[in-house]
């Protein structure tokens, strides 16, 4: 009976993931075509697995209840059945094909070359911050963990992270991008491998020293999207977040013009608005 209760509880936990499907428990559906692909596949495979799990564990639990020695049953003697074994080879293959088809479509869509980007951003990973260069615009800056988080995250700082807004997920200079435009990323690194990841965009891609990786995005909605470095890159790997500020194309143009002006005047780069 204990086994039953336990598995039941586990099953309930599994099933309810769907019901709790909100950001904190589940993958974000995100704000790009790619993130929708990833989310769709994730949910599809998850549910398939839940169904298979219910069937397999169900059969086990039934057997554990019905076929126990204490009920005085005599054990059966059968030890194989070619038919059964063929069936449970074929059915999983069919299920896998059913998964592989959308996965292939999604992957091809995500890896398709996009020759006409509206904007190219070069992303360079350093220990432990990011550098962004807008290649066609001559704008570039470094983006690091914000001061507040940085102070509080020191070992035994004695401060309460709860008081810091967006603790560890905030930067001094966010990456500003226009919505509805095709943005191409060129990712590389200067020292060790990093990985650039903003969940809302639907992918992460490694930034590898000596090589350039390509990726692209088209953000659907304005907003602030946060992410983190996702490849162990040394001591402060946990402290090199990424913040994207997605704005309308007009706002973006204005921001770029501002940047260029201040760059020409030799001033500090002024992002459109700090830490909102």
């Amino acid at each position: 009976m204990k086994a039953l209760k336990f598995t039941g509880a586990l099953g309930a936990m599994l099933v309810s993931t769907g019901a709790w499907a909100e950001y904190k428990l589940n993958m974000t559906p995100g704000v790009t075509e790619f993130s929708h692909i990833a989310y769709g596949l994730h949910m599809r495979i998850l549910w398939i697995c839940v169904v298979i799990g219910v069937l397999v564990f169900g059969a086990m639990i039934y057997s554990m209840i019905a076929h126990r020695k204490s009920k005085g049953v005599e054990p059966a003697r059968f030890s194989h059945s070619t038919t059964a074994e063929i069936i449970w080879t074929i059915i999983p293959i069919l299920i896998l094909l059913f998964m592989a088809y959308p996965a292939t479509k999604g992957l091809i869509a995500m890896e398709a070359p996009h020759d006409k980007p509206d904007l190219i951003v070069k992303v360079t990973g350093f220990q432990w911050r990011w550098r962004y260069d807008y290649l066609n615009e001559d704008v570039g800056f470094i983006s690091s963990l914000d001061q507040e988080s940085n102070r509080v995250r020191q070992l035994k700082s004695g401060e309460n992270p709860g008081q810091v807004k967006d603790y560890l997920l905030n930067v001094d200079h966010p990456l500003v991008l226009p919505v509805g435009k095709q943005v191409k990323f060129l990712l590389t690194a200067d020292d060790v491998i990093h990985s650039w990841w903003v969940p809302a965009l639907g992918w992460k891609r490694d930034a590898i020293p000596g090589f350039v990786n390509e990726a692209w995005t088209k953000i659907e909605k304005p907003g602030i999207y946060r992410g983190q470095c996702a490849e162990l890159c040394g001591r402060d790997h946990g402290f090199m977040p990424i913040v994207i500020k997605a704005v309308t194309p007009e706002e973006f143009e204005a921001w770029v013009a501002e940047q260029k002006k201040s760059a020409m005047a030799g001033q500090e780069i002024q992002p459109i608005a700090d830490q909102s």
């Binding site: 086990m60 076929h67 059945s81």
Partner: peptide, 19 residues
Amino acid sequence: TGVKIFNWVATMWKGAMTF
């Protein structure tokens, strides 16, 4: 791997189990 899992379940099926 599935074949293995299913075979294990089939091994338990109609046995006289103790735990």
